[in-house]
Every structure is written in structure tokens, then in C-alpha cells.
């Protein structure tokens, strides 16, 4: 059973889409497992000013993607890297035990997008 918050983020996902001139793009997951998350970040002066996502996955995967974009916008890259899977799950009022891996995926997607940004912008 999903929390109301998970259902809200699943039914009305925030920030779905792509950022054509993204500064960092990260894709994690595997179609074999039924989960793929693609995260786009726009970063100005080390601050995440916009985030968008596309996700193939279950209700929890969509909801964690959606809430993650909300959690990181306005944060510095360093702050975003500190967001844990637990923080993602907590922000959704919890996830069923079998779905906790979805929150790992969100954390990994953020990290992958930031790594991409850093590889394109050495020293930042």
C-alpha cells in the first residue's frame, strides 16, 4: 500500500520532461529490472536551478523521481549529493519495504547527473 503522498506524486508527477540544454544528465537502472530513471539538471554557480526527469517504472519509481526533483532544486550540488535514499523515502511519508530500492535509484540518479555535470565542468 502506498501513502497518499506517493500516490499524489505518482498521479501528478512534478517536473516530468527533459531539459534540452541540461548541464548534467544521469541515467540509472536497468530495463531488465523494470526501473529506469533519467535525471536532467540545470546548474548555475553550483546551484541546481532546474531539474526534470523521465522514468520507466512502478508507482514508487515515478513518485521518488518526482519528489527528488523537488528536493534538489534550489540546493547546491554539495547539498544535493548529501540527499540519502532515506530522505527521499521520508519525504514521501515512507515506502513499502519491497519498494525501498526505488529510493536508492533516485539517489543514484541525482548522483549520476551531478557526476556528468562535474565531468563536463572540471573543478566545480
Amino acid at each position: 500500500m502506498y501513502s497518499d503522498k506517493v500516490m499524489d506524486h505518482f498521479m501528478n508527477p512534478r517536473n516530468v520532461g527533459e531539459i534540452p540544454d541540461a548541464d548534467g544528465v544521469g541515467q540509472v537502472g536497468n530495463p531488465k529490472c523494470g526501473d529506469i530513471m533519467k535525471m536532467y539538471l540545470k546548474i548555475n554557480d553550483g546551484i541546481i536551478v532546474d531539474a526534470k526527469f523521465k522514468t520507466f517504472g512502478c508507482g514508487a519509481a515515478v513518485a521518488t523521481s518526482s519528489i527528488s526533483t523537488e528536493l534538489i532544486v534550489g540546493k547546491t550540488v554539495e547539498e544535493a549529493l548529501k540527499i540519502t535514499n532515506k530522505a527521499v523515502a521520508d519525504a514521501l511519508d515512507g515506502l513499502p519495504p519491497a519498494k525501498m530500492h526505488c529510493s536508492n535509484l533516485a539517489e543514484e540518479a541525482i548522483r549520476a547527473a551531478i557526476e556528468d555535470y562535474r565531468s563536463k565542468n572540471p573543478g566545480k
Binding site: 498521479m11 529490472c33 523494470g34 526501473d35 520507466f56 517504472g57 512502478c58 508507482g59 519498494k99
Partner: peptide
Amino acid sequence: EFIEGESLLLLLDMKGISASSGSAC
């Protein structure tokens, strides 16, 4: 193709339709 079954079941449920899926989730 390109979508996951549990998500689909949730959306159908919102429309009052009950069905099932063979997805892992």
C-alpha cells in the same frame, strides 16, 4: 512497450478498473 505494469494498474484503478499484471512489481 516502454511502460511498467504496476504503474498501469494504478492508473486503471484510479478509473475504477481492476485488472492484473505480470510485472515484477
